[in-house]
């Protein structure tokens, strides 16, 4: 049950998604990854990708145009 963060602020699509995908593959089941993004497309495509993988996803708007996507690796 470890928690990791991934700072993708300032990264353009599709880099945040690619980094998230890579990082998630390194995590163990039960771990949580928090991805910080400010790319408006990533706030749609990262949660979508994670849901399709079957992970638990939450998205939080932390500031104007800034989000944190919280992904729990469920399997």
């Amino acid at each position: 049950m470890a928690e990791f963060t991934l700072d993708c602020l300032g990264e353009a699509c599709p880099v945040p998604l690619m980094k998230t995908e890579k990082k998630m593959s390194e995590l163990a089941v039960g771990d949580v990854l928090i991805v910080s993004i400010d790319h408006s497309c990533a706030m749609k495509n990262i949660p979508e990708w994670a849901r399709k993988q079957g992970y638990n996803v939450e998205i939080e708007e932390v500031d104007d145009g800034e989000w944190e996507v919280v992904i729990e690796k469920t399997k």
Partner: peptide
């Protein structure tokens, strides 16, 4: 559209790689 959603933010360039890209 961005302002009406209160999501506007100037996104600065993060790295030299982005400049090249």
């Amino acid at each position: 559209a961005t302002l009406l959603a209160s999501q506007f933010k100037i996104k600065k360039i993060k790295s030299k790689k982005q400049v090249v890209a």
